[in-house]
Each structure stands twice: as C-alpha cells, then as structure tokens.
C-alpha cells in the first residue's frame, strides 16, 4: 500500500505543479500577448494620420530593406506588417519566416502554402501594421 500512495502523491504534485504554471503564470502571458498585439495594432491603425513615418505607403525597395530576422517586414495582400517581435513566438520557429522577410509575393505564397487562410487573422493581429505597399 505504501508504494501506491507514493505513486499517487507524485502524480498529484506533478499535475498540480504543471497546471499551476500553465494557468496562473507563463502561459497566461502567452495568452495575453494576442490581445496585446490586437490592441497595439488598433493603436497603430488609429495613428496612421499622425505618423507618416510608419504609416501610409511603403515602396518595395523600402520593404526589402527590412529583410533580417532582427528587422522583419513582410507584405500580405498589399499591406505591410512588422513581424520582428512575433518571430521568436512563431510556433513553427523564426527560421520558417526569416527567409521571407522583406518580401511580398514570396511571403504570400509561402504563407498560403503552409496555412491557407486559416492564420491570416492571427498574423494581422500579431504583426505591427506599417502601411500599404505601393
């Protein structure tokens, strides 16, 4: 009987420790990051008229300058987004997106091939809107 108690006590502690860490700490931040990103995008969208540097039209040459993992802009359906902060959080790793930083049609094709249209909303929420692609 002693061993069965040890088994269930260990199981009880392990399950509770993991549940606590997921529901009360770390992962709650992950869950909040999506809503924060949406709020951030709403703010960026509202400030388009006031901030001509990061809103308005962006040329292809300007887009191509932001082609590094540390400074990653992409264009999707004519809109430019800054995905730099999102890259480390991408479930499929930053390396999956990094080759397409600074691109438009290449990124669109890769994104559609991988996700179809199922993740568009999330990408738009996580990225920082920069402006329209000229």
């Amino acid at each position: 009987m002693k061993k069965i108690w040890i088994i269930f006590i260990i199981a009880f502690i392990a399950v509770n420790a993991v549940a606590f860490s997921v529901f009360l700490t770390g992962n709650s931040q992950q869950g909040n990051s999506l809503s924060n990103a949406i709020n951030q995008q709403n703010k960026t969208g509202n400030s388009q008229d006031n901030n001509p540097i990061t809103s308005g039209s962006i040329s292809s040459s300007e887009l191509s300058k932001h082609s590094k993992q540390s400074d990653c802009w992409i264009s999707y359906k004519g809109k430019v987004y800054d995905l730099t902060k999102w890259l480390p959080k991408h479930p499929g790793s930053a390396a999956a997106i990094a080759p397409y930083c600074g691109t438009s049609s290449e990124f669109e094709k890769a994104f559609s091939d991988k996700h179809g249209t199922s993740q568009v909303q999330r990408m738009v929420a996580e990225g920082i809107y920069k402006g329209e692609l000229k």
Binding site: V18, A19, V22, F23, N27, S28, Q30, G31, L34, H90, P91, G92, H115, S118, Q119, R122
Partner: peptide
C-alpha cells in the same frame, strides 16, 4: 494544459 487554455495559440 496550454492547448486547453489557449487553443488559438496552437492552431498554427
């Protein structure tokens, strides 16, 4: 537990 808590973070 993470998937149960925030499924939208894992749909990708």
């Amino acid at each position: 537990f993470s998937q149960i808590k925030n499924p939208s973070n894992w749909t990708g």
